[in-house]
Simulated scan of single mutants.
Amino acid sequence: MDALTDLWARISQLAAPLPGSWLLGSVAAGLLLVLLPGTWHTVRHAVTVVHEGGHGLAAVLTGRRLTGIRLHSDTSGLTVSKGPRTGPGMIITLLAGYTAPAIAALGAAWLLSAGYAAGLLWALLLLLALMLVQIRNWFGLWVVVLGAALVVVVTFFASPTWQAVFGLVVTSVLGFGALRASLELQRSRRRSRSTASDADQLAGLTRVPGVVWVGVFVLVALACLLGGAGLLFPGALEAARSFA
């Protein structure tokens, strides 16, 4: 019981609000990691982990049997589940991939705005632990273990302030990364004319054009970014409303 009490105290620990300059700097750092070509390839692995985790969670929740997840060095991934090839379950599973990082970023922004930076880190550890048991290739194992090691170090050795900074950077990477990945999907579709993307598979199941599904991914990413900004910068949102 003492161990559980101590664990809950760690998870529910409240962090003091970051100064405005630190808040802006953390978000800007996450944005730069997504915008710069040299760093985008690296941090996109984090976006892919959440993307594939979204597929996996949706598959389980819709009654499909999750059989494994692979992460590749080119930042792509593959989640395999067994079940009907058509129907709502398959549609939801496909839809969950590109939308998962954006929704996760919105949830993370909510936790951070409430002061639960430590809680966010523990949620990340839980996600990575669940991913670990489903990984089916060595590179994917390396990505998940390295990510988990980084989160463990921050969780157990960083001060609450730096935990909040790290959480904000991760949140920004997921939020902006979800938008960039969705936009890149359309460019990739135009170049390769492949029918294997989530958008094209959704088009085959629903008869709604793939470009429309890409638009859905982009709109979800934008909506979650705006929602996250409203949570993290409530003063700026109120000022914008007053100006309007």
Score class of each variant (00 low, 15 high):
residue 28 A to H: 04
residue 190 R to E: 12
residue 95 L to W: 14
residue 181 A to V: 07
residue 240 A to C: 03
residue 196 A to C: 02
residue 91 I to E: 06
residue 216 V to G: 01
residue 205 L to T: 08
residue 83 G to V: 12
residue 146 L to R: 01
residue 149 A to K: 00
residue 121 L to R: 05
residue 213 W to A: 00
residue 24 L to S: 05
residue 27 V to T: 12
residue 151 V to W: 02
residue 94 L to S: 09
residue 195 T to R: 13
residue 99 T to Q: 06
residue 71 L to W: 11
residue 39 T to R: 03
residue 167 G to P: 10
residue 28 A to F: 12
residue 192 S to E: 11
residue 75 T to E: 13
residue 77 G to T: 09
residue 127 L to W: 15
residue 243 F to I: 10
residue 217 F to S: 01
residue 141 L to H: 03
residue 47 V to Y: 01
residue 144 V to K: 07
residue 109 A to Y: 04
residue 219 L to E: 00
residue 213 W to H: 06
residue 44 R to F: 09
residue 169 V to P: 09
residue 154 V to N: 07
residue 212 V to T: 11
residue 163 Q to I: 12
residue 147 G to N: 11
residue 238 E to G: 04
residue 113 S to F: 04
residue 25 G to N: 04
residue 242 S to R: 14
residue 21 S to T: 13
residue 223 A to F: 08
residue 219 L to P: 03
residue 57 L to N: 00
residue 63 G to E: 10
residue 198 D to N: 05
residue 164 A to N: 09
residue 24 L to M: 10
residue 131 M to Y: 06
residue 232 L to S: 02
residue 218 V to F: 01
residue 133 V to H: 10
residue 12 S to F: 09
residue 244 A to D: 02
residue 15 A to K: 00
residue 21 S to R: 14
residue 60 V to W: 14
residue 126 L to I: 12
residue 156 F to V: 14
residue 150 L to C: 13
residue 161 T to F: 13
residue 32 L to D: 01
residue 172 S to P: 04
residue 220 V to D: 03
residue 205 L to Y: 08
residue 109 A to I: 08
residue 104 A to V: 15
residue 130 L to G: 15
residue 178 A to W: 00
residue 75 T to D: 12
residue 59 A to N: 05
residue 138 W to R: 14
residue 105 A to N: 05
residue 139 F to H: 14
residue 59 A to L: 08
residue 107 G to A: 11
residue 61 L to W: 14
residue 159 S to H: 11
residue 157 F to V: 11
residue 36 L to N: 02
residue 133 V to R: 14
residue 44 R to P: 04
residue 117 A to T: 07
residue 165 V to D: 03
residue 232 L to I: 10
residue 23 L to T: 09
residue 216 V to H: 01
residue 175 G to D: 03
residue 169 V to T: 04
residue 6 D to Q: 14
residue 111 L to R: 12
residue 213 W to L: 03
residue 162 W to L: 15
residue 36 L to F: 14
residue 188 S to Y: 12
residue 220 V to T: 11
residue 14 L to I: 07
residue 55 H to W: 03
residue 208 V to M: 05
residue 210 G to I: 00
residue 73 S to I: 12
residue 84 P to V: 05
residue 6 D to K: 13
residue 224 C to K: 01
residue 43 V to T: 08
